[in-house]
């Protein structure tokens, strides 16, 4: 209803805030502090990046210095690995070795006098397939874990009872004295025959062959 009679003689620059926090001071101050803070942060960031770059250069130089030594170490490690593999392979051979000595030493006691051994042989195992050419590292030894070992005894018997003599020998080989070495002994078919190469005089003489299965060599 009534018009205001507020005739204010106070000028704008004489109006102050009663708040202890003065916005017209704080806002510019905070703005300046913000800019200064950003500047300091930026400077710190630049200094940090510079430090990191410097450190990176140092590390690169150090790496370059260490490279030959590192390569040498890598080569030594590779050699060491190779040697270790060879030693390991030798160990496998050692553990896989089948000892024939004791059995062979006992064998003469069981050989009848009419029998003469013409050949006592441990045949070479069959050749393995050639290694894969795509492999970078070639195997140092056989890659199969087991290998069949046989003992071949060939001889002649020259008596009227040659067949008994040969059978006697075969039985002897199956006895417990040899079971440590020989798992199975047999005369392959067609290997027990007359010795025709020596003429009619040697008609009573027979040739024989005994194949003994000695079990497997295990490379483990």
């Amino acid at each position: 209803m009534n018009a205001s009679l507020h005739l204010n003689l106070l000028q704008d620059d004489e109006r102050f805030s009663s708040s202890p926090i003065r916005l017209r001071v704080m806002v510019p101050l905070l703005a300046v502090l913000g800019v200064v803070g950003l500047g300091v942060w930026w400077l710190l960031l630049i200094a940090r990046i510079d430090n990191i770059m410097h450190e990176k250069t140092n590390l690169e130089t150090h790496c370059a210095e260490l490279k030959p030594t590192h390569d040498q170490v890598l080569a030594l490690r590779a050699r060491e690995k190779e040697t270790r593999a060879a030693v390991s392979q030798l160990g496998f051979y050692r553990t896989a070795r089948i000892r024939f000595g004791d059995a062979l030493a006992r064998l003469p006691q069981h050989v009848p006098a009419s029998i003469q051994f013409t050949e006592l042989r441990v045949p070479t195992p069959p050749l393995q397939p050639p290694p894969d050419p795509t492999l970078k590292v070639k195997p140092l030894g056989p890659t199969n874990l087991a290998e069949t070992v046989t003992l071949r005894i060939m001889g002649r018997a020259s008596s009227s009872t040659s067949s008994e003599a040969v059978r006697s020998l075969l039985e002897a080989l199956r006895r417990p004295a040899f079971t440590n070495l020989i798992r199975k002994a047999e005369i392959p078919k067609g290997t027990f025959r007359q010795d025709t190469a020596r003429g009619p005089a040697a008609r009573e003489c027979v040739l024989f062959e005994i194949s003994c299965d000695c079990g497997e060599r295990r490379f483990e």
């Binding site: 507020h6 005739l7 204010n8 003689l9 106070l10 004489e14 109006r15 102050f16 805030s17 009663s18 708040s19 202890p20 003065r22």
Partner: peptide, 13 residues
Amino acid sequence: PEGRRPTACSLQI
């Protein structure tokens, strides 16, 4: 003065 209660907001005859 500024920063203390009260501060002048009006001056009248």
